[in-house]
């Protein structure tokens, strides 16, 4: 597949530090609501203008404030979390487009999700009898959604430990220390339902792992993923914009700097 990124598509690498005052300035000037065609114009102008301010903000302690959230709520063993880190980075790796899962905060995002209502299936029907699936099937009609008695927190613990055991058996090392190719092989077997797990198919665990990795890459940063909105920058998704009224019919692609909910809701 050829990759035809134009100059306009390239990421502004030095535009990562979050600074709400900058966004508010933009809103007040009306540039966002009215829209600006041509990403390099917007990115270039503002990056140059505010680089100085960003650095000041960092020194004054903003980065430390972010780090308070990077501790474990759900996982209790570092080795489980290490497998999660390696697995999410394989699924969504750092590349020339920008950061991977670890830099985006995905493993901590998943840890927080598992500690909350998603991790205990709080919105799901949880009465028995439970009829877990026993063989993988490509047929959509046989998938029948989640049927396991295990909640998602238990599924992750089980799944990550099975990955580690599998790595030990096959490669004589823990999953996080295995090579990229070895990690890839185990993940592929998980996705294909080829690794034995008690109470569900490995493909069901992989589905949750895969989905939550993408969530962590692209959710609003309030959840601990998509750190500094860099997932959105790669994706050219501008976040919680109030309006596209002035640009919806634009012939050209319109690139905007992203807006977080912290900013959007906070006025």
């Amino acid at each position: 597949m050829t990759d035809k990124h134009t100059d306009d598509d390239k990421q502004t690498k030095d535009d990562k530090t979050y600074d709400p005052s900058r966004r508010r300035f933009l809103k007040n000037t009306g540039m966002v609501a009215g829209g600006v065609v041509g990403g390099s114009f917007l990115g270039g102008l503002l990056t140059n203008k505010f680089t100085q301010k960003n650095e000041t903000a960092t020194k004054s302690g903003m980065e430390h404030a972010t780090d308070f959230q990077e501790a474990l709520q759900f996982f209790t063993r570092r080795e489980d979390f290490a497998v999660l880190q390696a697995a999410t980075e394989q699924i969504f790796p750092k590349d020339e487009n920008g950061p991977g899962a670890i830099e985006l905060g995905v493993p901590y995002y998943i840890d927080k999700q598992l500690a909350g209502q998603w991790g205990v299936n709080a919105r799901d029907y949880r009465q028995g009898p439970f009829v877990p699936k026993t063989k993988p099937s490509e047929r959509a009609e046989e998938k029948r959604g989640e049927q396991s008695i295990l909640d998602r927190g238990s599924i992750f613990l089980l799944g990550l430990r099975v990955m580690n055991q599998e790595s030990g058996k096959r490669f004589n090392t823990s999953f996080d220390k295995a090579t990229e190719a070895q990690q890839g092989e185990i993940l592929q077997d998980l996705q294909d339902g080829k690794i034995k797990m008690n109470g569900l198919l490995s493909s069901e665990f992989f589905f949750l792992l895969h989905r939550s990795t993408l969530e962590g890459a692209y959710c609003d940063p309030l959840y601990g993923g998509n750190k500094n909105m860099d997932g959105w920058r790669m994706k050219e998704f501008p976040g919680a914009q109030a309006s596209y009224m002035g640009v919806i019919d634009s012939e050209d692609f319109v690139k905007m700097d992203p807006v977080s909910l912290e900013n959007y809701q906070g006025h």
């Binding site: 597949m1 990759d3 487009n97 990795t213 692609f253």
Partner: peptide
């Protein structure tokens, strides 16, 4: 034909987003 995860997935999913 593109895998659903990994390097090629990331590259293509970003490239084709819009």
């Amino acid at each position: 034909g593109t895998p659903t995860w990994g390097k090629e997935f990331k590259k293509n999913s970003l490239h084709y987003t819009n």
